[in-house]
């Protein structure tokens, strides 16, 4: 049984069909790429998986449980973590507090009111900041970070709670080539800890990282396979490469 399984997902906005009978399976410890041209339904699919949107038809199961109508907060508590496409860190909080906020979500409100876990969580916060190379900015406001650093902070926030499945929506959007290279370096070792479903425009960036790639086009699954199979696919080449 796959960690995440999407079957026959359908989602429309008025007359526009964003997802049309989409099937997707993400296995444990798998780095799964999701690519496609603009408007292909990548972000909509990711939103449906995270709970930001609900599919009109089809089922979603995560860890063998149906989550089709489960609210996003519950999905997050079960081990699903999302990094938004548009950077949405907490600008008015420090970098440290952003991470603390994401880690402590598993604790009860009663525990949080007593600040019982602040000391215990401190090493974890510092470790994740160190891993994402923003340890020296811990006390700076998140809003003061560069765009690339904010993207790393957001990935760190998504990874910090120790999710089973990490959903990354265009983590390199707006980054310089050097920042993209560093992001690749940061993402590579994560595979050992959790499964990753990553949405990207850039096939070159994703093919080195992914075990499996799914290609979407106009709301449908165009192809699915290893990076080598996808690169060799005529359908993908015709539709994806020529349009992006």
């Amino acid at each position: 049984m796959a960690l995440l399984e999407v079957k026959g997902a359908r989602k429309s906005y008025g007359k526009l069909i964003a997802l049309d009978m989409v099937d997707l399976a993400v296995e444990s410890q798998q780095f799964h790429g999701l690519i496609g041209p603009n408007g292909s339904g990548k972000s909509t699919l990711l939103k449906c998986i995270a709970g930001a949107e609900y599919p009109e038809e089809g089922t979603l199961s995560f860890l063998d449980k149906d989550i089709s109508t489960t609210p996003p907060a519950i999905r997050a508590r079960r081990g699903m973590s999302l990094k938004f496409q548009i950077t949405s860190v907490f600008n008015l909080l420090s970098v440290y507090d952003n991470i603390l906020l994401s880690i402590q979500a598993a604790h009860s409100l009663w525990q949080l009111a007593g600040s019982r876990s602040r000391q215990i969580l401190h090493p974890q916060v510092m470790d994740i900041l160190s891993e994402f190379r923003i340890e020296s900015r811990a006390d700076d406001l998140a809003g003061e970070l560069s765009h690339g650093e904010q993207q790393w902070l957001e990935i760190a926030m998504a990874l910090a709670p120790g999710p089973r499945l990490l959903l990354l929506d265009e983590p390199t959007a707006g980054m310089s080539p050097e920042e993209r290279r560093v992001t690749g370096e940061l993402l590579r070792p994560i595979k050992a800890r959790c499964s990753i479903l990553i949405v990207e425009h850039d096939l070159d960036f994703i093919k080195d990282l992914s075990d499996v790639i799914t290609v979407l086009d106009q709301g449908r699954v165009l192809d699915n396979g290893t990076p080598e199979q996808i690169e060799a696919s005529e359908r993908v080449r015709e539709v994806y490469v020529t349009r992006v």
Partner: peptide
């Protein structure tokens, strides 16, 4: 800290759980 997060980005904090 949770309250500070809610004040700034209510939707985001939902996805943290």
């Amino acid at each position: 800290l949770v309250l500070a997060g809610i004040r700034e980005r209510e939707e985001r904090i939902t996805f943290l759980g």
